[in-house]
Design a protein around this nucleic acid. Structure first.
Lengths: 115, 115
DNA sequence: TGCATATATAAGTATATGCTTATATCATAA
DNA sequence: TTATGATATAAGCATATACTTATATATGCA
């Protein structure tokens, strides 16, 4: 058995989280750069509590990390997670979400925070 | 965009199906060889209706193919499915289910059907 | 034909999921 | 200190999910 082998149960748990359009998009976004909640809300056109609840699931599972900077909380992909190889492979096979962040930027809605 | 790119929505649907321990094991089993329902029942130690219902979901999504041979219905992985690349990658990263079939065979419970 | 085996389907149920609205928490700025 | 903005959490609700038990369907064989 390869050292990098992922237990089936753990894999299933991660895959269940990936099996939702909203969360899959969120992961596709944080693959490219960290994002804060209001950016997800804007990109996905969903309510803030709904986004927060999805992020909580991803964070509880350890798939994303959060970091507060001022009033914003930035989320990023946790590349140290045991199931990260699965996430990485999946994200390579779906359309890039980068343009959505570019569009945000052009609309002046991207959060830039140096604190 | 790569030609082989899988639409996010379709990917999410497949991933949702993979996000269940029972179905993930079923797919891990048919990766190696086609299996009939009673074999899944034996390996997974679950009720026949429960297994049938999981197989139905996988078949409705087109992830597996079924083929009747005599009184048995054999299920196999549909490698032509648009999302097969995802399934393939995932199955490569979880423990092989082959031993479970070997154990079945040793117990004389493997179905051999030539019809 | 009639019975056994393999599988599918139907109906019921407990739990999970994903939203909603309302409210709480926390940081910043006036 | 108060107000504002960003985020989290709580509660409620409709729907989805994954079992269960009971039954239907289809094949093979005596």
């Amino acid at each position: 058995m390869k050292e990098t082998m992922i237990e089936l149960e753990q894999a299933a748990h991660t895959l269940k989280l990936l099996g939702d359009k909203t969360r899959l998009t969120i992961l596709g976004l944080v693959k490219d750069s960290e994002c804060c909640v209001c950016e997800f809300v804007e990109v996905l056109q969903m309510s803030q509590p709904s986004i927060s609840q999805h992020l909580r699931k991803l964070r509880d599972a350890g798939l994303v990390k959060e970091q507060r900077r001022g009033q914003w909380i930035f989320y990023s992909l946790n590349r140290e997670h045991a199931t990260y190889p699965i996430i990485q492979q999946v994200l390579e096979q779906i359309p890039d979400q980068k343009e959505k962040l570019t569009a945000l930027e052009e609309a002046g809605l991207r959060i830039q925070c140096d604190s």
